[in-house]
């Protein structure tokens, strides 16, 4: 098994758990230490983006998967907005950061849920 799924309440104290899972799955993917670090950071930023669009009582869903040399995350929550705003403008510096550390990034609204899917890849 190379994947881990997690569902947590929309509360910042669960960010630590999210980072730790990202690190363990990243190690399974045989990432470099730098990519491990960025996998944690990207997962953390994804969670923060979901929290920005979720209602306080909603849950956040995460699925990590280890592939050789890359960590993939699919995450989602129910979105409080009918349409997503312009993301670079809405997310500001968080957009700059998550764009810089991910090799794949897709944020979209589907059936009332906001999805943040991303990948972090080791570069040698």
């Amino acid at each position: 098994m190379t994947g881990v799924s997690l569902c947590v309440p929309n509360q910042a104290e669960y960010l630590r758990v999210i980072r730790q899972i990202a690190m363990v799955v990243g190690a399974k993917a045989d990432l470099t230490l730098e990519a491990l670090d960025e996998g944690q950071l990207a997962s953390d930023e994804a969670a923060n983006i979901l929290m920005k669009f979720a209602q306080p009582e909603d849950s956040l869903y995460f699925d990590w998967e280890a592939q050789p040399g890359s960590l993939h995350l699919r995450s989602r929550t129910r979105c409080l907005l009918p349409v997503l705003p312009d993301l670079p403008e809405a997310l500001e510096y968080a957009w700059v950061i998550i764009s810089a550390i991910t090799s794949e990034l897709d944020i979209f609204l589907d059936n009332g849920e906001v999805h943040v899917n991303l990948a972090v890849t080791s570069t040698r």
Binding site: M23, V24, L31, T32, G69, S122
Partner: peptide, 26 residues
């Protein structure tokens, strides 16, 4: 930069010990 498994081969530590240490570093 070493991959995680290459690093594992270079140190006399278990995977859990390496992950714990990295977590402490971060």
């Amino acid at each position: 930069q070493p991959s995680f498994s290459e690093l594992e081969n270079c140190v006399n530590l278990s995977r859990g010990e390496i992950l714990n240490a990295l977590q402490a570093n971060y």
